[in-house]
C-alpha cells in the first residue's frame, strides 16, 4: 500500500499488527482507516490487529459502527481485533449511549492486548 494512502502508521510485532491511532477520528479518516487496515491484513497475513485508541477523544455512533464493521471484516479474513487504551470519558460516553464495540476484544494496554492475541 502506498505510503501516502496510509491514515496512520502501523507496526508489525510477530504476526500482529499494531495500530496506534494518534489523530482525532472523523468520518472520512475512519473510513480510510478501514480500507488501510483491510489491505494491510491481506498483504501481511497477520493473525491479529491491535487498535490503540489512547489519543482518541471522541468515539460516536458512526465511528464505532465503522470500527465494528472493520472488526467483522477482519474476522472473515481470519484475523482477530483487539482495542486497547479507551479513555475513561470515552468509555462512559459509549456505555451511556448503549454502544457495544462488537467484534472487539477489549484490553487495558498493549501488554494485555498481546496476551489476548495469542
Amino acid at each position: 500500500m502506498a505510503f501516502k494512502d496510509r491514515v496512520v502508521p502501523t507496526i508489525r510485532i510477530g504476526d500482529a499488527l499494531l495500530v496506534p491511532i494518534q489523530i482525532d477520528l472523523d468520518d472520512k479518516t475512519v473510513e480510510r482507516l478501514q480500507t488501510q487496515l483491510l489491505e494491510e491484513i491481506q498483504e501481511h497475513r497477520v493473525r491479529a490487529v491491535i487498535l490503540d485508541v489512547r489519543m482518541v477523544e471522541v468515539i460516536d455512533s458512526y465511528i464505532s459502527y465503522t470500527l465494528s464493521e472493520t472488526a467483522a471484516m477482519a474476522h472473515l479474513m481470519g484475523c482477530r481485533t483487539v482495542i486497547c487504551g479507551i479513555q475513561p470519558p470515552v468509555a462512559l460516553t459509549l456505555a451511556q449511549m448503549g454502544i457495544e464495540l462488537q467484534g472487539f476484544l477489549v484490553a487495558r494496554d498493549l501488554e494485555h492486548a498481546m496476551g489476548l492475541v495469542y
Binding site: 477523544e57 471522541v58 470519558p89 462512559l92 460516553t93 449511549m97
Partner: peptide, 14 residues
C-alpha cells in the same frame, strides 16, 4: 467534568 465534556461533544457530533 471531562466525561461530561466528552458526552456533549459526542452528542453534537451525532
Amino acid at each position: 467534568s471531562l466525561a461530561d465534556v466528552t458526552k456533549v461533544a459526542t452528542a453534537v457530533s451525532e
